[in-house]
Design a protein around this nucleic acid. Structure first.
Length: 600
RNA sequence: GCCCUCGUAGUUCAAUGGAUAGAACGGGAGCCUUCUAAGUUCUUAAUGUAGGUUCGAUUCCUACCGAGGGCACCA
């Protein structure tokens, strides 16, 4: 219990520190993208009887290739608010913009439900200046300042290896944590370790029956996992083993000292191994508050649910049952042998979190197979009455599928995360050596890790989270287009140019060809993309955006000799432009928790 | 049986209800005596089926078909 207090205090210190850091974030409204929107909103409002138009009501995008304009404004969303004919709105708005002087817009052309806008040249200078000044802060904003989020992710089970299945929660959770922080949230990263439950009865039974102390000490997780698999095999033959396991777990909850000691040993050894993986992935948790911390308090929650008539004792079995709540199927809160269940422990944890941290939101980054459980948990919380000010959100994602089916520890069809990382890094090494035989051992190891680990993370995050991911070694180890390397490589390419001649900031960059304007425009959208990624809990929006940006750059790079540009002013403008591209790629990858290197 | 998620080029993925559905891999044809060819240019090819709502549907609704997941003493 002391441990719980220590961790809580540590987290509170971090929260206080983060609150201060939020003050240094760029203001959302100061970004060019939002200033342009604001200007348009004001014009619309003045034109149509001062009807209130929020910037979020405006939908601005980059027009498709065949439209020759800088930005397009979609009119239907505005005309709906105004209750007017879209054609009329588009026409009148276009007229006013063309007649009156505006700060950012040169001219407007009506095209059906769209108003196509041409930007003033000074916009581009301002855009690049924004990036240059803010640098690693470019894209971050203070939209959600004064809010606190607890993000519950990764959550591996003690005594089981972290598998590719845990990768999604780990990688997605960390990216969301970064993105939430980038929009002003103070974030507490919590690892809800699976360290309690009947499975430990199974494990302890197996250890006591077949275990080898020395082997476990040498290679804890692998050895314990073997025992767990053996238990399940034996239990298939002899179902009574399951009852024995339940009994052992029940005794563990009741405080049996000998069993407790074993459990503590397994727990410590496992977390130590997990941290090796987190180190490689660059993830640091603020708290490791596993389920075991809330086993005792779970009993209070069961009592409260009984008092409030939300739950009842089943007469036949003595188990505690919650009957159907508002369409959510009924479920058990306590087993008939008196031991707690996942959901009651989670209930206790919510109470603890609200009491100690007062979060505005708690995100549970857990696979879709637990959707029903969270629906039940949240519904119960609502009835018990904790979550008035705290939003509970299940960030649900698809499974990692192997050969068309879910991977299973019991069946042994699991790819271990460590193995995956090792393979990826090894393959990166091979490819680097193909390109550069003289690379130093140290640099090789460093770059291979950046590429290998980045690829794995990116492969997961570039895809929208709802879908199942089919696991495929070939895809995982893809180092060409649509991978992290593509972005890392683009970044390194730019850095390599800038190392030769860095550009100097200029107020009025001059651009010549379309690629240059397109790149500058794309850069303006980055702060918007970060906000969208947070709003939709979708890091892949950032990935997609960066691929488009990198593609624009690489195309530009192939068509123009940047360092060979004769006109000095144009050359400098191009250098500033590509430097901004590099900054955006780096900032975007950092949000996804992927590293960059100046040399790839 | 009931509930949830997903069905888009040969494959893996994009597309707040908006313009001619974008990429990557694969197939075909080019581009390095010039800044990193892990790049780039051209080409090939897709919205499961049938209805409905809408000025407009890959997106929303209904039914069906297909894949995956879940449905009380596991987490």
């Amino acid at each position: 219990m002391n441990e719980l207090k220590t961790q809580t205090e540590k987290a509170l210190v971090k929260i206080a520190k983060s609150k201060k850091a939020v003050k240094d974030l760029p203001k959302t409204g100061d970004y060019l993208f939002f200033k342009i929107k604001k200007e348009i909103a004001k014009i619309v409002s003045e034109l149509f009887n001062n009807k209130v138009i929020k910037t979020s009501d405006l939908n601005i995008s980059l027009p498709p290739y065949h439209i020759k304009a800088d930005l397009s404004l979609e009119i239907f969303s505005i005309s709906k608010i105004l209750g007017l004919d879209p054609k009329k709105v588009s026409k009148e708005l276009g007229l006013v913009i063309n007649k009156n002087k505006t700060k950012f817009i040169e001219s407007a052309t009506t095209a059906g439900p769209y108003l196509n806008l041409k930007l003033k040249k000074n916009v581009y200078g301002e855009a690049l200046a924004e990036v240059t000044v803010l640098e690693e802060k470019y894209g971050k904003n203070d939209k959600n300042k004064n809010k606190l989020a607890i993000i519950d992710f990764s959550s591996p089970n003690i005594a089981k290896p972290m598998s590719v299945g845990h990768l999604r929660s780990t990688v997605l959770g960390q990216a969301l944590a970064n993105i939430y922080e980038a929009t002003g949230y103070v974030v507490v990263r919590d690892n809800h370790i699976g360290d309690w439950g009947t499975q430990f009865g199974k494990l302890i039974y197996a250890y006591q029956t077949w275990g080898d102390e020395k082997a476990v000490a040498k290679n804890p997780i692998a050895e314990l996992n073997k025992l767990y698999i053996k238990f399940n095999e034996e239990a298939n033959k002899d179902p009574e083993l399951d009852d024995k396991a339940r009994e052992i777990f029940s005794n563990l909850e009741k405080g049996d000292g000998k069993i407790r000691k074993l459990w503590e040993k397994f727990s410590k050894l496992s977390i130590k191994e997990f941290e090796e993986v987190y180190d490689i992935l660059g993830i640091k948790f603020d708290t490791y508050l596993g389920e075991s911390y809330f086993a005792k308090d779970a009993e209070d929650e069961v009592k409260k649910a009984l008092e409030k008539n939300l739950a009842r004792k089943d007469e036949e079995s003595d188990a505690i049952v919650v009957d159907t709540l508002l369409g959510v199927p009924s479920f058990l809160l306590r087993k008939q042998d008196g031991s707690t269940l996942y959901i009651s422990r989670d209930l206790a944890k919510i109470k603890f979190r609200i009491a100690n941290f007062k979060p505005d939101i708690i995100l549970y980054v857990v696979g879709q197979e637990q959707k029903l459980n969270f629906a039940q948990l949240f519904e119960l919380v609502k009835h018990i009455g904790y979550s008035n000010k705290t939003e509970l959100k299940h960030i649900c994602f698809g499974l990692v599928i192997m050969d068309g089916a879910k991977m299973s520890t019991r069946k042994g069809s699991v790819v271990e995360l460590k193995e995956l990382i090792n393979q990826s890094v090894a393959m990166a090494k091979e490819l680097i050596l193909e390109k550069d035989k003289d690379i130093s051992e140290k640099e090789l190891a460093k770059t291979a890790e950046i590429i290998g680990v980045g690829s794995i993370i990116y492969n997961d995050l570039r895809q929208s989270k709802e879908k199942n991911i089919s696991f495929d070694w070939k895809k995982m180890l893809n180092f060409s287009g649509g991978s992290a390397v593509y972005l890392q490589y683009t970044y390194a390419r730019i850095k390599s140019i800038l190392k030769k001649v860095p550009g100097e900031v200029s107020d009025k960059p001059i651009f010549k060809n379309e690629d240059e304007f397109n790149l500058a425009k794309k850069i303006i959208f980055f702060p918007h993309v970060v906000l969208e990624a947070q709003r939709h809990d979708s890091p892949h929006l950032i990935a997609t955006y960066m691929e488009e940006l990198a593609q624009l750059f690489n195309s530009f790079y192939n068509s123009v000799q940047i360092l060979g540009t004769e006109d000095e002013e144009l050359k400098n403008s191009r250098l500033i432009l590509i430097a901004s591209v590099a900054t955006v790629i780096k900032n975007g990858l950092t949000l996804l928790n992927i590293k960059t290197s100046d040399k790839i």
